[in-house]
Design a protein around this nucleic acid. Structure first.
Lengths: 146, 146
DNA sequence: CTGCAACCTCAAGTTAGCTTCAGATCAGCT
DNA sequence: AGCTGATCTGAAGCTAACTTGAGGTTGCAG
């Protein structure tokens, strides 16, 4: 519609709160793409603001850039993503949040049981265990949050 | 009580599921301590199994080793930690979990609002925003999980 | 008392996710 | 036309949390 559908990297930086260097890094990683001006400067789509906002939110949830990239592939290529596209991908993020909440809730319950005896073994938590009987139970509490 | 209150690093490794190299690294970082045999091999207290279990659980919650170290300072020095000590510190961990759950819940609610319009701005989420009016609202969705 | 798994130290390498720096060019206002 | 802030590239550096490797020593079962 208007000519300034294309924004320079500094603007994208201000609008997303990301450092310019971070955006360039994301481009290297393939999380966003840009076109170049005659003078070789990057120009991004306005819709990349949303795209990078999504990246930040997903990151705060603990997703790695690789996973985020995978999520983002569900956005249309060629066409600028519309509301429906973002709704769809946001719902996927919502699922992620849900499962994280569940995981934490389960851990909290486990921990509650274990606070009772202070054993911190989180599996075979039978009373305090002078002889370290739990040794038979295999290695550590690793599994707790796996 | 018995002579084998002291265990070698390999045993500690098996009992915690941690790599030997990781335990040595933790010792460098000051998360555990050991005594040495005549031949310079490390010997740990059995209670360090719990200590390192705690480390692993806290880590899975996203705490950094520095924060974990801080938590661990609440354990008694000199004396082997008893059940009460572990209960106390575990409760502190429980608080951490609780606040994380709250944070995620808040984020989920925000996101739910935003899925409605697909804007992903998460603050002034008034309908879809062709002119990018939100620009006035300051940089990105940074604050969401801060 | 011998053999060999388990230990030791120290330096360097690894992955993720960026930042910093140097030196050079661009773009837009006056 | 000129100034000045914004951008460019590529290499190197950084933090966290470890792992790997080389070369050497210990400790205990038989």
């Amino acid at each position: 519609m208007h000519r300034n559908d294309l924004i320079p990297i500094g603007t994208l930086s201000r609008r997303t709160g990301l450092a310019v260097s971070a955006i360039r890094y994301y481009e290297d990683r393939g999380l966003v793409t840009s076109v170049r001006t005659g003078g070789n400067q990057r120009r991004f789509l306005r819709s990349d603001i949303r795209r990078l906002s999504f990246v930040q939110i997903a990151q705060k949830l603990g997703l790695g850039l690789a996973e985020i990239e995978r999520e983002l592939t569900s956005l249309p290529q060629g066409r600028t993503p519309n509301i429906m596209d973002w709704q769809k991908i946001s719902r996927s993020l919502r699922k992620e949040i849900d499962s994280r909440i569940q995981l934490l809730t389960r851990t909290r319950n486990k921990l509650d049981e274990c606070i009772g005896c202070g054993c911190l073994s989180l599996d075979r938590c039978a009373l305090y265990n002078k002889e370290d009987r739990a040794a038979a139970g295999g290695p550590g509490p690793r599994f707790v949050l796996d």
